[in-house]
């Protein structure tokens, strides 16, 4: 299996860094971005297979960032991270082309499963 490249976009430093750390030990090439703007900047120079995008972020929220990503690199699969009360943003994200949404706080395995499904889809494998 090729190395899976994942970008975690969340303004919560502790959360983002912990997830990145846990994905890394699972042989996933994970990196973090603290805002939508930062994510778009990173995308100019780097490529990812899957992006995990928090919905609620200051300045540019997840939905807005998703729109930009889909314009910039439509082949990248995006997973939305939502709270219980903001499921509708997850659904909206899927309407805008996101692969799926995961509700916070989610066990890592659930997130990782979704990431792998998204990766399979990108590679044209059954998911």
């Amino acid at each position: 299996m090729d190395t899976l490249r994942v970008l975690i976009v969340d303004d919560e430093d502790d959360f983002r860094e912990t997830i990145v750390k846990r994905l890394k030990v699972r042989k996933v090439l994970a990196e973090g971005a603290s805002s939508g703007i930062e994510a778009l900047k990173v995308l100019e120079t780097k490529d990812y297979d899957v992006i995990v995008l928090d919905v609620k972020m200051p300045k540019m929220d997840g939905i807005e960032t998703l729109r930009h990503i889909k314009k910039l690199k439509p082949e990248i699969e995006v997973i939305m991270l939502t709270g219980h009360a903001s499921v509708e943003f997850g659904i909206k994200g899927m309407q805008l082309g996101a692969f799926d949404y995961v509700m916070k706080p989610a066990p890592l395995n659930e997130l990782l499963d979704t990431i792998i499904q998204a990766y399979n889809k990108k590679r044209g494998l059954p998911h």
């Binding site: 919560e12 959360f15 912990t18 916070k104 706080p105 989610a106």
Partner: peptide, 10 residues
């Protein structure tokens, strides 16, 4: 949920 997510992840 945000701190809970951090707690769970950590």
């Amino acid at each position: 949920n945000n701190p809970l997510a951090i707690i769970m992840a950590t």
